[in-house]
C-alpha cells in the first residue's frame, strides 16, 4: 500500500497532537496536605483510629476496592462526623467525603476508587469532639489509571 506524503503528514500530525496533548499533572504529597487543610482547616492530625484498606497490589487502577473504617463507639456523645479520602498522587488528591451520623452504628464505608499511580491513600476522620485522626495505606498499581 502506498502512502501519499500528504496522508503521512496528516496522520503523523494527529499522532503528534495526541502525544503533545497536556497530560494531567499529578498531585504531590504537598497538594494532598493542602487539600486536607482546605477540607478540615489547619488543625492537628493524630495518627490512628482510622484505617484504609486497599489491596497492597492493585492490578487495575481504574477500579480499586477500598474500605475505610474508624474505631468509634458511634454514640450520640462520641461518633464519627466525617471521613475524607485523599490519593496523594492522583491529578486531584480529593477522592470522596463521607458524612456519618450516630445512627450509622458502624463507622465503615466501602467504595471503588481510581489510582493514577502507585501511591499512598490517606483517610482523615473527624470525630464529634472535633478531633482529627488519620492513617494511610500504600498500594502498588500495576495498570495505572494514568489518564483516569
Amino acid at each position: 500500500m502506498s502512502v501519499s506524503r500528504r496522508t503521512l503528514l496528516k496522520t503523523s500530525a494527529i499522532a503528534m497532537g495526541h502525544w503533545l496533548a497536556p497530560l494531567p499533572a499529578f498531585a504531590t504529597r504537598e497538594d494532598a496536605n493542602a487539600a486536607i487543610i482546605a477540607t478540615f482547616g489547619d488543625r492537628p492530625l493524630q495518627e490512628g483510629r482510622v484505617s484504609v484498606q486497599i489491596p497492597a497490589i492493585s492490578e487495575n487502577g481504574y477500579s480499586v476496592p477500598m474500605t475505610v473504617e474508624v474505631d468509634s463507639p458511634m454514640t450520640e456523645a462520641d461518633h464519627v462526623v466525617r471521613i475524607s479520602i485523599f490519593a496523594e498522587e492522583n491529578p486531584i488528591p480529593n477522592v470522596a467525603h463521607f458524612e456519618l451520623r450516630p445512627e450509622t452504628g458502624i463507622a465503615r464505608v466501602q467504595t471503588r476508587i481510581r489510582l493514577a499511580a502507585s501511591q499512598r491513600v490517606r483517610a482523615v476522620a473527624e470525630m464529634s469532639d472535633g478531633s482529627l485522626w488519620t492513617s494511610y495505606t500504600f498500594s502498588i498499581v500495576t495498570l495505572a489509571a494514568c489518564v483516569l
Binding site: 480529593n94 477522592v95 470522596a96 467525603h97 456519618l100 452504628g105 466501602q110 467504595t111 471503588r112 481510581r114
Partner: peptide, 27 residues
Amino acid sequence: RYNDRVVFRAEFFPAIAANPFLSFFTR
C-alpha cells in the same frame, strides 16, 4: 434518607470509579 432524615451522605470526585458503589451502615 430514612423516613426523611439524612442518615448518610457522600461527595464524589473524579477518582471514584465508574458505576459508583457504596456500602455503609445504619440502625
